[in-house]
Every structure is written in C-alpha cells, then in structure tokens.
Design a protein around this nucleic acid. Sequence first.
DNA 1: GTCTATAGCCCGATAGAC
DNA 2: GTCTATCGGGCTATAGAC
Lengths: 221, 221
Amino acid sequence: MAIKRKPGPVREKRSDSRERLEQEILEAAKRLFAQRGFGGVSLDHIAREVGTAKQNLLYYFSSKEALYRRVLHGVLDVWLSYMAAITENADNPERALRRYIAGKLRFSREHPFDSRVYANEVISGAPLFAQEIRDRVLPALQADIAVFNQWAEQGVCRKVDAAHLMVILWSSTQAYADFASQICLVLGKSEMEPEDFAAGEQLLVDMVLRTVLRVPAQTPP
Amino acid sequence: MAIKRKPGPVREKRSDSRERLEQEILEAAKRLFAQRGFGGVSLDHIAREVGTAKQNLLYYFSSKEALYRRVLHGVLDVWLSYMAAITENADNPERALRRYIAGKLRFSREHPFDSRVYANEVISGAPLFAQEIRDRVLPALQADIAVFNQWAEQGVCRKVDAAHLMVILWSSTQAYADFASQICLVLGKSEMEPEDFAAGEQLLVDMVLRTVLRVPAQTPP
DNA sequence: GTCTATAGCCCGATAGAC
DNA sequence: GTCTATCGGGCTATAGAC
C-alpha cells in the first residue's frame, strides 16, 4: 500500500512526535531556567529531565542560547495572554481593574515558572529580551496607560500616575509567583493555597479601587 | 626602633589591607551575582573585576559558595537596616507607613545590587538562605505584622491582612531596584531619576494610607 | 533522529615556589 | 599573600556511524 508511504501522513506523524518532544524540552528548560537562571543550568540537566541526551537537544535547538530564547518567547506569549483585561473593559474601570488583578494573579498561580524566567531575565537587565519587551510588552502597557488617562480625562476616575500604578500592580501580583518561597515563610506554610491568593487579591483590589475610583464602590470597613 | 616592628601596628596594617581587599571582592561579587546569578558568574570574572587572580579569591574565601554566602549575609544586613520604621513608629501609623515606604525605596535606590542578589536567591527558592531568612527576616516581619494588628485592635486603623500588605509593600518597593530595566523601558528613560522614585513613593503612600487609615489624612483629589 | 566519540574550552580548587 | 602551574572534571558544540 503506497498510501502508507505517502509523504503526507508520515511527515505529519514525524512532525507530531518532533513537536511533542520539542515541547517537553521547552517545558523542562523553563522549569530549570526559572530555578537556577541561564548560567546555572546545563544542557545535560535539561536532557536528563526529559530522558534523552544533550546532543539531541542540539538537534532540536541550534544552541543553548537559542533554546533559552525560545523559552523566553513562549513565556512572553503566556504573560501577554493574561494582560488584556484593561483594554477589553475600557468602558468599566472597576471591572477592568478587578479582572486585571485577578488575571495577573491567576498567571502567577498557574504559571509560576514562566513568571520566574521573566523575572530572572529582567533582573539581569534583559540582555536578550529588551527588543522583544519593547516590541510586545510596551505597546500593551502603553495601551493600558492610555485607558487610565482616558478615564481620568472623562472624570470617571481620579488622576493617578498610570505608569507607576502599573509598576505596583505588576510587581505585587508577580510576587506571588517569584517570591513564593518567602511568602510561604511569612505565612508559615510549605506552599500557598487558593485562599492565600484570594486574600492577596482582595487586599490589592481594595487598595487599587480606593485609590483610583472616585466613588467608593466596594468593601466594608 | 623596635616599635615599628611591634606586632600590634604591623598586624593592624596587614589586617586593614586584608579587610579592604576582602571588601572589594565582596562588592564586585555582589554586583556580578546580582546581574547573572550564582551559576552565571565565575571566580575569574570576579577576580578580574578587582584586578587580582582567582587563586587569590580562594585564599580569602574557602570556596565560591562560601563567598556567595558572605555576600548574602552582607545583603541581609543592609536590607534589615532599612526595615525598622514600623516598630520604631508604632505610636503613629501614618508616620510609620510613610517612613517604611520611603526607607524601602531608598534601599532600592541606594542598594540595587543588594536588592537583586536577594531577589535572585528568593526566586531560586532560597536554597542557601532559608535558614537565615527564618532567623533574621521573619522576626522583623512578624513584629511589623503585630504592630498592624495592634493598630487594628486599638481602632486607630482599619483591619487589613497585614501579611499580604507586607507582601505588596515589599514587592512593589523592591521592584524599583529589581525590575529597573523594565521600568526604564516603560518610562522611556535610560535610567531612573530621583523624581521617578518620588512619583512611585507618592502613589504607593497614597494607596496604603487610603486603605489602612480610618481618617483620610492626606492627598487632594 | 538518535547514538558514540571527541574536540576545545572554562571551571573550581590545590600545590608549591617565592 | 601573591604568584605560576596544573589537576580533574564539566561544559557547549561538532563529527560521523547507524
């Protein structure tokens, strides 16, 4: 049966398994880079984690740095996918802020390794990442800032320094992933539970709404 | 003159120069560990930075890890020295919070490398540092939390989740050191200036006082 | 696509002259 | 205390058999 040897299905199968292994490599690399940083991880570590040899990693990725860049790129995809709440709810400041904070905290809970890889790279001065941050993160942040300023102009919100508000929102939500080990020590737990994220979210939402909204719309004393 | 050869002065001189070089090594190591993490720095890098050979580093410090531990210990000394504002002003919540935030932001501005070394270590799960955090940071944090709860009991402040408030204060102030490269991109500057720290401080103080104090005591609309 | 083998380099650490 | 020399090992990356 010639059909079995047709390029189509065969290529597809190969491509599928190739893609699956590639994905496994990227996941393992992400976890290790998150924990030890680029310089603290060897291709050998990553290869052992996925049960193959390091030479195979260099078949799928042209170099260690190329692998790291692919990890960074994927991290940014995930990061950005959690950040659209403000522009999507530009007609409703309270809902926009609530959803933005909830989304960023969900990102920290569901993707702690992505968060830490991103943090490591930014702390290092983003040597390999500055351009991608400029091209993909900055436009999103500036759109958010524009929405804040629009709210202030329309008089529906108090005028706040939107750039610094974004810094505070971004860093405090990200802390629940990046600094989890320290938060656990403070809370006296071995790992954070859903109610801890909920408590952080409630406080942060409270702080932001009190500061930004003209009409106090929420929580009891 | 035998006095010149007396052990006292000679030892003191040797000890002084030894201490000076030791301090130079620690400073250079701190800067490099802050930027690249433990695994991303070699003894050679550090030695070149202070103009000596790596073998000399191993004369002053018994191993790379021992050097790193000494850096961490020094970082914690500095970090803690900026954190006493709350317990020192337990009689005046507004002043305590204003000074705490100002102090932590001053730490970020004056000691960005210390801040980043600390952040790197915590992101990695604090493998070498958990004990020292438990022994030195936790007591300070718990004392602060106790002061918050005391304020709430006395009725001078609203009841807030003090642990999560500390997380937000800590992470957002630290962001001005750790994530400076990204904040600069957002602000469109090559480096942050005093007025940027002032703007962040003003917003954060505003948010915290609005949330914590019963009597709105400060800023205009 | 996955193996073995290996080139070529850099690493942390030690030994010993001075 | 600082130097040269060097060990043993791990590193990224390449070459080539299968």
